[in-house]
Design a protein around this nucleic acid. Structure first.
Length: 1019
RNA sequence: GGGCAGCUAGCUCAGUUGGUUAGAGCGCUACGUUCACACCGUAGAGGUCACAGGUUCGAAUCCUGUGCUGCCCA
């Protein structure tokens, strides 16, 4: 038999396993044939964006999915895991546009719509390939024959169908909406694509004159703004309708706050209260007057443009702040927009899409916002309308995509009305048709959906599903009816004027369908999340009634990260129900996000990320997966310390906030330099790359190796063994123990996976495989394998244990388990486990999931075995404490009850081998030599005769300390038991348990004191 | 501003319905390589369970508040 190498080679194994699985296409699923009664398990992948390569979050997400799908496959389910990628609208377009600008100095307008889209497709091809490759490297057992893309023909057909149905039911509306306008990309971006950053700015106080002030009225009002150029679009100046009442409310709030505040905060609150008092006397009369003027319809004159705009009474104006008056620019500020709607103000848009000012800005038209601001301020100053300029730090919204400041901008958008279609999605979760794990996440789902806010779906982009709506003007409805007679996939609504919006299910509506009046296609595309919302049914072929849809929809489980519950999960439920009448999935398993050592989210721009490919290269895919699964606990955040690995000496260098932005780093150990992702200068780029890794993946790598070496041991000792049916044997204690543990571990690990407690499953299997199977059982077998009488039984049980562990671990660590499985096939291909009725699978991927009978579980055996291990531990501890060399045999006597002694008797050989001892006596009367080191564990007194070896002084010191500790515990227990309240109120079992513990402790102390006295005499 | 979490060993995390002498991995210390594995073995050190109150015979665990951290929504 060729001996296996001492170290597991993950690279070679991964290549072999991949080839094996691909050749057998074990990941492929066909819809159930008639008569196929297998239960079905199906999942759709949360499609990664084609924006870039996969990061650790994807590795986590996909590992967990693979754990589920591999488990179910082994359990005999008909399993489908649908793979694919997302076109990711703005994100991808922005990346390609940025490159275009950097590399060719071209804008998208230089290139044109068609050419740009071509470029993005090329980008997509490249990254889709890379992403799918990464998923396969990770071991994901997706059905690769079914790979989809959110923008492919099949998904596009589903998008048009779904949109048409919404339109046809009157659920699509056209409306104005204040959007986050990215002036660089010239598109609206969603709230999620905006980040806020503090920047230095100013607060300009501007005087607006009152038109024809009357006696007793102020000649002007002062308002303040951080964006003075927006005054060009002002529609009003607002004052509170009841300033006195508003001040009362403000004061009451402050007083309540003061009552709860500590002394430190009082001073500040008092200052605010003083300010309010001053306002009451000095400002309130003026505000009352202004409120009356507003009611009377008086106007103020807009500086620079000279337009008269109304004073309005609106609660948005805060009498407790500033001048108490505020300018209203409905088309360029979200709060002002609300005021504008309440007060029926005109919405004056002063911006062009490119961020320059339009004709509404009069003399400022054509200027950029920045230049206009300078000019407006200068103009105000010259006109004497500028009262004051303050420095101020302001929170400025920036586009996540282009990093430029966001301008609030009023635009025409398509909306999907949510009131009607959101309700079934709410009911699905409250009614339990969709279950969310952990349950607390259901709250954010329900809260968000409960608002039923209309969904703006227009995006001013070129990359995406083009909205299937055409506009036509100057025709009457009969013309439309005539033009589209006989076509059921066309519907229209009035545009509110003389035109029509026509929606078509087919891409080719026919722009010339109406003579003389061309149909003009809406230039916008749909929000990316629209196609994502259809993902579970569109990938299965909807709207066609495919066998796939019949077999695999609704899907079983969706595994995703907590940050897209609203964006994606909720919308999938809405659209799934709307389109198919059924929920898209039964369970939603939410997993945490991965953060770095400092609790920051990992991102490429911060340079604190770990590339999964680096981990796979350095430590293996199984190490990455095991780490991921271990980290997938129910807490929200996973912190991952990141380290650079020196490419020269493999030393690890902690990644810090400072060094993570450096283009090159010098290894403190070998002084060799390496480059990071930031390297741009030729000098730096020429250096070898130092990958960023994390120590948290090492235990997975070590675990792989442990399994590998346990296998080596088993294979080395399988010589001459004819493996047939393997079953648990009632013979030896350790065999009954192993069987019992196999059964309970299988039960617990299976349950943990069923309940999406992934980390728990990993922990159970790791501890069992390492601490129990390798450290205990395998060690015990060394003695048994040496004895021809016990050898065959030990071989059979070793094989049963190893095989079961491999199957249980396969979903988490597919490669190492498959590699080992193949080696076992060569030596022990004839084995059959009790759960292998159909024979042994040629690949572990389709091997039967273990189902040991509950009857194997035997608590008594487990307790007995625990006693044995405790004795071994006690002897080892004494040896170690006394510095007995590992190979030196010592004499041991064990005093224990007859029952315990009988139990331990057959284990003497094992004991001798595991603790390197000669057993000189055992039984109720056994005793050690005078001055022997002793220990008391699990009802056994262990005497280790160390003869001259003993360090008596050290033993006295240790024993004294231990006795003190024991005495302390005794005191605490005695006090507890002496407390009448405890005796009266605690449950009897608890009191009883305390008494027993006290008795044990007292016995232990008595023995300890005895031994101590004996040692002192000897000393 | 509203909501959801987290705070346990130097680091990263477990800790099921309150009943402990609070655990694991990494790191650290000591010892050990012919006999599966140094990606290893054996043993050890290391904790006011963020803080302050409360409920209880009994609190890491339940309640209230405070602080810090993170996320989501405005």
């Amino acid at each position: 038999m060729p001996e296996l190498p001492k170290q597991y080679d993950h690279k070679a194994a991964q290549a072999r396993c991949r080839a094996l699985w691909d050749a057998a296409r074990t990941w492929h699923a066909e819809p159930a044939a008639p008569g196929d009664t297998r239960p079905v398990f199906s999942m759709v992948i949360p499609p990664p964006n084609v924006t870039g390569a996969l990061h650790l979050g994807h590795a986590l997400n996909n590992t967990l999915q693979d754990v589920l799908v591999r488990t179910r496959r082994m359990q005999g389910y008909l399993t489908l895991w649908m793979p694919g990628t997302d076109h990711a609208g703005i994100a991808t377009q922005a990346v390609v546009e940025r490159r275009l600008l950097e590399e060719e100095k071209l804008s998208r307008h230089d290139l044109g719509r068609e050419k740009l889209v071509e470029r993005i497709w090329a980008w997509k091809e490249q990254y889709e390939k890379r992403i799918l490759g990464q998923l396969r490297d990770l071991g994901a057992s997706c059905d690769w024959d079914r790979t989809r893309f959110t923008l492919d023909d099949q998904c596009a057909a589903a998008v048009r169908e779904a949109f048409f149905r919404l339109f046809d039911k009157g659920l699509v509306r056209r409306g104005k909406r204040l959007v986050n306008w990215d002036t660089f990309l010239q598109t609206a971006v969603s709230d999620d694509e905006v980040f806020h950053e503090q920047v230095k700015g100013h607060f300009w106080h501007i005087r607006y004159d009152v038109v024809d002030p009357q006696l007793g009225e102020p000649a002007s009002v002062t308002v303040a703004t951080t964006r003075p150029e927006t005054l060009l679009g002002d529609a009003a100046v607002a004052v509170h309708p009841d300033p006195a009442a508003a001040l009362d409310v403000a004061e009451r709030v402050l007083r309540e706050k003061r009552a709860q505040a500590n002394a430190k905060e009082h001073a500040e609150i008092d200052r605010a209260l003083d300010d309010l008092a001053v306002r009451r006397t000095e400002l309130l009369p003026l505000l009352e007057t202004l409120a009356a003027m507003a009611r009377a319809g008086r106007k103020v004159r807009l500086p620079l443009l000279g337009r008269a705009i109304p004073l309005v009474a609106d609660e948005w104006a805060k009498p407790e702040m500033g001048s108490g008056c505020v300018k209203i620019t409905p088309a360029h500020d979200p709060n002002d927009y609300d005021v504008g709607r309440r007060q029926s103000l005109p919405m004056v848009n002063i911006l062009n899409p490119d961020g320059t000012l339009n004709a509404e800005a009069g003399p400022y038209a054509g200027l950029t916002i920045h230049k206009a601001r300078t000019k407006v301020v200068a103009g105000l100053d010259a006109a004497g309308q500028l009262v004051q300029v303050e420095d101020r730090i302001i929170e400025l919204a920036h586009s996540d995509r282009s990093k430029t400041p966001i301008e609030p901008y009023l635009a025409d958008q398509w909306f999907i009305r949510m009131d009607e279609i959101a309700q079934p999605a709410l009911d699905a979760v409250t009614g339990g048709a969709v279950r969310i794990f952990p349950e607390r996440y259901a709250k954010s789902y329900l809260d968000w959906l409960g608002e039923k806010r209309d969904w703006p779906v227009s995006r001013q982009l070129w990359w995406g599903h083009r909205i299937p709506i055409w506009h036509v003007d100057g025709v009457a409805e009969p013309d439309l009816a005539k033009a589209f007679a006989g076509r059921d996939g066309v519907a229209w609504t009035s545009d509110g004027g003389t035109g029509w919006h026509v929606c078509s299910r087919d891409e080719a509506l026919g722009v010339g369908a109406i003579a003389g009046q061309p149909l003009v296609r809406d230039p916008d595309v749909l929000d990316t999340w629209f196609s994502s919302a259809l993902w579970p049914h569109s990938t299965l072929g909807w709207p066609a009634a495919t066998p796939e849809l019949a077999s695999f929809y609704p899907t079983s489980t969706l595994v995703t990260s907590r940050d897209i519950i609203t964006l994606w999960v909720a919308r999938m439920v809405i659209m799934g129900i709307f389109d198919t009448g059924k929920v898209p999935f039964r369970d939603v398993a939410i997993h945490p996000k991965i953060l770095d050592r400092y609790g920051e989210t990992m991102s490429k721009s911060k340079g604190n990320g770990v590339d999964p490919v680096d981990v796979i290269e350095a430590l293996g895919a199984d190490a990455l997966r095991f780490g991921m699964v271990s980290m997938a606990t129910e807490t929200q955040d996973v912190r991952m310390p990141v380290e650079f690995q020196c490419p020269h000496c493999e030393a690890r260098i902690e990644q810090t906030v400072q060094n993570r932005m450096h283009p090159r780093i010098e290894c403190p150990k070998c002084k060799g330099a390496f480059r990071t992702q930031w390297a741009t200068k030729p000098d730096d780029v020429a250096l070898p790359r130092g990958p960023a890794l994390s120590e948290r993946f090492e235990s997975g790598r070590n675990f792989s190796n442990k399994l590998w070496n346990a296998t080596r041991f088993v294979l080395m000792n399988l010589e001459g063994f004819e493996a047939g049916s393997l079953n648990a044997s009632p013979a030896a204690l350790e065999d009954r123990w192993l069987a019992s543990r196999l059964a309970s571990v299988t039960r617990d690990a299976t349950r943990a996976i069923d309940e999406y407690r992934f980390a728990e499953a990993a922990r159970i299997l790791y501890a069992f495989a390492w601490d129990e199977f390798c450290s205990a059982y395998l060690e015990l077998c060394k003695a048994r394998l040496a004895d021809p009488a016990t050898r065959p039984q030990a071989q059979a049980m070793l094989l049963l244990g190893l095989d079961t562990i491999l199957r249980l671990l396969h979903p988490i660590m597919p490669f190492v388990t498959e590699e080992i499985w193949q080696h076992l096939q060569e030596i022990a291909g004839g084995r059959r486990l009790p759960w292998d009725p159909a024979g042994l699978s040629p690949t572990i991927m389709t091997a039967a999931w273990p189902t040991p009978p509950a009857a194997w579980i035997d608590d008594r055996t487990e307790r007995q075995f625990g006693t044995f291990l405790a004795v071994v531990g006690a002897i080892r501890e004494i040896r170690s404490r006394q510095n007995v060399p590992p190979r030196t045999q010592v004499k041991v006597a064990i005093r224990a009850s007859r029952e315990t002694s009988d139990l331990l008797a057959p284990m003497h050989a094992s004991l001798a081998s595991m603790a390197v001892v000669e057993i000189t006596g055992a039984g109720p009367e056994a005793s050690g030599a005078a001055g022997a080191a002793t220990a008391t564990v699990a009802g056994c007194d262990v005497f280790v005769d160390l003869a001259d070896l003993i360090d008596v002084g050290a033993e006295i010191t240790r024993l004294t300390k231990e006795n003190e500790k024991t005495a302390g515990f005794i005191q605490a227990k005695q006090a507890k038991l002496a407390d009448e309240k405890f005796a009266a109120k605690a449950p009897p079992q608890v009191v009883q348990k305390e008494r027993e513990q006290l008795a044990e402790l007292e016995a232990k102390l008595a023995k300890g004191l005895g031994t101590l006295a004996a040692l002192r005499k000897k000393h």
